[in-house]
């Protein structure tokens, strides 16, 4: 017994180092597995508060660009509105057309955005109090940004598409061939669309959209354009380089999408799997 105590006291520095290092290593490993990075994330009171103070100062610097983006989006929406064929008859109210609200949209400010690491996250200023939950989609007017993976009371954290853990269902707009969108950790301008069938007629310049197979994003949200593509080693599938519509290095305001039918869809899929 005495000897054990002596050993501990003699090597106390090394033992403490070993303990702290293994705690850090354990946290690192569990942060590398999707959906389990619970303890250490920036969606909390402390970091949210600090980033919020910072944001309230530096949001003034790019008000002009934000205005331009908003005006552009307004123009696009107005065009869409004026060019829809179905004229809305204000006297006729059909309850079935109003009951089909599928997505609820919440607007949020980005408090923190990173793109230099291989696992990037965004911190947003809306949380559980604004009924934001895990697996809600995050988009801007240009295209998709990521998926909410952690929430606290007033803040939430989104897994950016610039994260090697991110995997999103996407398709080529013109041909409807699907693939999964991943990131190789290199450039914040390009993401990769993998597992696209060799039979798909891939053309440089085509648009990539969300596929609508998952219940997170609605169908047809823009992602980017094809800049190049190559066959896989096996020769069965293409890997396509996609240039993003969004400038991931400069994001101010985002929209969080909630699929109202999501729980129902998930329940159905679960019951099918059993």
């Amino acid at each position: 017994m005495q000897q054990i105590f002596n050993f501990v006291i003699r090597n106390k520095t090394f033992l403490l180092f070993l303990l702290l290092f293994s705690i850090a290593l354990a946290l690192t490993i569990q942060s590398h597995s999707y959906h389990r990075s619970k303890f250490i994330n920036s969606a909390n009171f402390l970091t949210g508060g600090v980033y919020g103070t910072m944001n309230s100062v530096d949001q003034y610097f790019d008000l002009k660009t934000k205005n331009d983006i908003l005006a552009e989006e307004n123009q696009r929406l107005r065009e869409q509105l004026l060019n829809t064929n179905t004229s809305v008859d204000s006297t006729f109210i059909d309850s079935s057309t109003y009951a089909t609200e599928k997505y609820r949209v919440t607007v949020a400010d980005v408090y923190k955005n990173s793109y230099s690491s291989t696992n990037n996250y965004l911190t947003l200023n809306k949380g559980a109090n604004d009924s934001i939950k895990r697996d809600f989609g995050v988009i801007t007017s240009n295209g998709i940004i990521g998926i909410i993976d952690n929430t606290s009371k007033n803040y939430s954290r989104a897994l950016s598409i610039l994260n090697v853990k991110s995997k999103i269902n996407a398709k080529i707009k013109s041909t409807n061939h699907i693939g999964s969108l991943t990131w190789n950790g290199k450039s914040p301008v390009y993401v990769q669309l993998e597992d696209v069938s060799q039979f798909a007629p891939v053309k440089v310049g085509d648009t990539i959209q969300t596929g609508g197979e998952s219940s997170i994003f609605p169908k047809g949200i823009g992602i980017g354009t094809i800049t190049s593509f190559e066959s896989d080693i096996s020769g069965d599938t293409y890997t396509i380089q996609v240039q993003l519509f969004n400038d991931m290095t400069n994001i101010g305001t985002v929209y969080i999408l909630e699929n109202v039918d999501r729980t129902e869809i998930n329940l159905l899929e679960k019951s099918n799997n059993e």
Binding site: I23, A24, L27, T28, I29, S31, I40, S42, T47, N119
Partner: peptide, 10 residues
């Protein structure tokens, strides 16, 4: 905590 990196800095 601030940079969402698990425990790498620690």
């Amino acid at each position: 905590l601030f940079s969402d990196s698990g425990g790498v800095h620690a």
